[in-house]
């Protein structure tokens, strides 16, 4: 079911910018048009570009947002997973809970409760 919905209508998750738009919906309650425009403005692209894997693979790489693992393009120096979320929080200017908790627990005295 997921694959049919994804092929028919989805922005495409981290293949493109679906996770970024979803984050603005989920944590900021932004409707689709507003969320797409917000993300596009922060990235310097158009809302149309956000569902294009060709355009967004490059943009994600530039910003260190993490991409789909692929031996063809993945490099160990690229940010991924929690590292990528630090970059997403900074560029989208939105706090990400797991990033905030990570910072809290990796500062002196922060992780020893």
């Amino acid at each position: 079911m997921h694959n049919a919905h994804a092929q028919a209508a989805s922005i495409g998750g981290i293949r493109a910018a679906g996770d970024l738009v979803a984050r603005m919906q989920m944590t900021r309650g932004m409707r689709l048009t507003e969320a797409k425009q917000y993300v596009a403005d922060k990235l310097g692209v158009t809302p149309f570009d956000l569902s294009d894997p060709v355009a967004m693979t490059e943009v994600r790489n530039e910003h260190g947002f993490g991409r789909v693992h692929s031996y063809a393009i993945s490099q160990p120096w690229q940010a991924n997973q929690i590292e990528a979320k630090f970059n997403i929080a900074r560029v989208l200017d939105v706090p990400i809970n797991s990033v905030e908790r990570f910072k809290e627990r990796t500062t002196p005295g922060g992780g020893g409760r």
């Binding site: 694959n3 495409g12 998750g13 981290i14 679906g18 979803a22 789909v68 693992h69």
Partner: peptide, 10 residues
């Protein structure tokens, strides 16, 4: 898998 293979948005 959902994130990497199936393009899940969340």
């Amino acid at each position: 898998s959902y994130e990497q293979w199936m393009g899940a948005d969340l």
